[in-house]
Design a binder for these strands. Structure first.
Length: 602
RNA sequence: GGGCGUGUGGCCUAGUGGACCAGGGUGAGGGGUUCCUAACCCCUAGAUCGCGGGUUCGAAUCCCGCCGCGCCCGCCA
């Protein structure tokens, strides 16, 4: 669902089953009870002031509504809170044990049913998966021009995009990740010309034995020529580039085949790199598709009919009301532009999906706003479209560029991450207290999970709008707030459960056995997980899940220190094993939601 | 010049109106393993939340102005 005033996803009133979380159920219950109580006192109930109290408060939920009501009622906030608490009857509430006041706050304390329900729900492998929203979402991300190796400067896009796709999937959406391939722009025409013009023997050796590294040599050489060569040579090259662009526009099959060979070759190498993250796509949608099927022509025809359409300097443009610059949609030579084709692309998305989400670099912001405004003029429901922007990863010395060959290749970063993780595993082998067998295969597996996980986590855990300056040491720090910290918790859970194989079943438990602060704290963290998924999906902010994994891991580590599992008496042991299993599912799924592997051992 | 974004201890970061005069991490100093993996845990020191006004019972959070940094303002993508 979408709030049409903000364009943001909003959640329908919950009718959630237990698997979707006690926290959400309790919140729904508290909201309803508060509303009834306020109505009963003849007070406005439009703002319930529900919030999560700080850590040292026993309540799971609280309301600060008494502050706002104080002037209406003519009494100080604590007195209003007391009246409200008297009006609320916790006997009617399943997940609320008691309603208490603390100064101006009305606090809702969790019941045994809350903890029992959490323990039971998190036994399920799919804990955190929300109810099906029966809504299809196309998430477009990465969409980097197929001109060369994927570098770290654009690595934020596949990592955020893939995490977002995963979070939306958990949140009950039917998600298709797409990569939109620019195979019709000027850069690709230049590339095609360069590929057909230069002889491989004149090019430097490729940095890697992979198609995109081999191909980018042509692209870079071509751009060098266009910048520096003598005017006659440049003019001849420009003629060829122009004829390729016009051939594509005219739907010429031979031109399309020539371009396609370059595009598909480079793309195959790029997608192999992206799969390492992993970031995978249901579809690679090509720009030329929307030229070949006539939809771009159709769109141009409709654009020229708009009141905002103007024909200036031999080019068709749109005088958009809220923008300083006109949007040119047809060049004076009759060819279309990126945005023109992207408009057709978006109408295609609208026709095939309920929602569209695009992950874009901040440099595309103006273009994206003009795109939305234009789609609106063409009578599309643009509330279906959400855009998530991120800022570039720069090097200390500046930005990264494929054309100029400046920057760190993502392949190199991942290789280095794996190498360092492997070294770390080996270094730790000697002082291992656990007497399990670590094979060479295990070392390799752990090195990959930890190395790549650390890179992903470092990026996904930060707000996308904040700038990042890439530094090797920081990106590959396994000690800091990082993937390994959370992954280690998963490995610990697996270690305990592994030792306990063959123990009595963990169903039909009395949650009262788990009554220490450490156990309750862990259960409370677990209970929130589905609500975290929901919030992350509603706000399209995967980093909130990453932040959550850290809190969850901290709670587990407290439990791990305070509460022996295997050596506890039989009933406590059984209950704690259930809790460890619940924690394992929660950590595993939370990591999965941001695309970080959960190692069974480390 | 205009628009958008961003500014939180030395460094990185959470929190974007309410119990937080700010929570983590890292770096610095100290401590913990006969016990389920120490990639862990605990303690100490370190912050006028860029600066100045304003709104509010209440501001890191909202508004206005200023400053630094990033991005954009192409018949490129």
């Amino acid at each position: 669902m979408t709030d049409h005033s903000t364009g943001e996803f909003v959640t329908p009133i919950s009718t959630a089953p237990k698997a979707a979380g006690m926290f959400r159920q309790m919140r729904t219950e508290v909201e309803a009870a508060l509303e009834t109580a306020l109505d009963g006192l003849d007070l406005p109930s439009d703002d319930l002031g529900i919030e999560e109290p700080p850590e040292d408060v026993a309540a799971v939920l609280a309301s600060s509504v008494a502050y706002r009501l104080a002037s209406d009622v003519g009494a100080p906030p604590p007195a209003v809170a007391t009246d409200l608490a008297d009006e609320l009857d916790s006997d009617d509430l399943e997940y609320v044990d008691a309603v208490e006041t603390q100064g101006p706050y009305v606090n809702f304390l969790p019941s045994e049913a809350y903890f029992a329900g959490t323990l039971e729900a998190a036994q399920s492998e799919d804990f955190g998966t929300l109810e099906d929203r029966e809504t299809s979402v196309v998430i477009e991300h990465t969409s980097a021009n197929p001109t060369g190796p994927v570098h770290v400067g654009r690595a934020r896009n596949p990592i955020i995009g893939d995490a977002l796709a995963r979070v939306l999937e958990y949140a009950g959406y039917d998600v298709d990740p797409h990569y939109y391939v620019n195979d019709a722009g000027r850069q690709i025409a230049v590339f095609t010309w360069a590929y057909e013009t230069f002889d491989e023997s004149d090019l430097p050796d490729p940095e890697r034995d992979s198609p995109e590294y081999e191909m980018v040599r042509y692209y870079r050489t071509g751009n060098d020529i266009l910048e520096d060569a003598d005017p006659d040579r440049v003019a001849a090259a420009e003629d060829e580039v122009q004829s390729i662009l016009e051939g594509l526009e005219a739907g010429d099959e031979a031109t399309y085949e020539r371009v396609n060979e370059v595009v598909d070759t480079v793309l195959s190498g790029m997608s192999a790199t992206l799969e390492r993250l992993p970031a995978e796509f249901d579809e690679f949608v090509k720009e030329t598709h929307f030229m070949r099927d006539g939809s771009t022509d159709d769109l141009v025809a409709r654009l020229t009919e708009l009141d905002e359409a103007v024909y200036e300097d031999d080019a068709w443009q749109l005088d958009l009301p809220d923008f300083e610059k006109n949007l040119v949609f047809l060049r004076s030579d009759g060819t279309s532009l990126y945005t023109t084709r992207d408009l057709a692309h978006h109408e295609w998305k609208f026709a095939n999906y309920d929602r569209a989400v695009t992950v874009l670099g901040e440099d595309h912001k103006l273009q994206a706003e003009q795109l939305t405004a234009t789609l609106d003029l063409l009578d599309n429901d643009t509330s279906q479209l959400s855009q998530v922007f991120y800022s570039w990863v720069d090097l200390p010395e500046g930005g990264m560029s494929t054309r100029e060959g400046t920057g760190v290749d993502l392949d190199d970063l991942l290789d280095e991450a794996i190498d360092r993780a492997r070294q770390e595993v080996k270094d730790r082998l000697d002082d291992r207290t656990r007497d399990d067998d670590i094979t060479d295969d295990d070392i390799e597996r752990i090195a990959h999970q930890v190395g790549i996980g650390a890179v992903r986590y470092d990026i996904v855990s930060k707000q996308p709008t904040k700038g990042i300056t890439f530094e090797w040491e920081r990106a590959l720090d396994f000690e800091a707030q990082s993937a390994p910290y959370v992954q280690y918790v998963h490995a610990r859970c697996c270690g305990i459960l592994d030792e306990a194989r063959g123990s009595p079943a963990t169903d039909d438990l009395d949650v009262a056995l788990l009554d220490t602060d450490a156990e309750r704290g862990l259960l409370r963290a677990i209970a929130r997980f589905p609500a975290v998924i929901e919030q992350s999906a509603d706000e399209l902010r995967p980093h909130v899940v990453a932040t959550y994994t850290r809190t969850l891991a901290e709670r587990f580590n407290v439990f791990y220190r305070e509460c022996p599992v295997l050596d506890a008496d039989a009933e406590t042991r059984r209950a704690r094993l259930a809790l460890v299993d619940a924690a394992r599912h929660t950590v595993a799924n939370a990591l999965d939601a941001v695309g970080v592997a959960a190692p069974a051992s480390m």
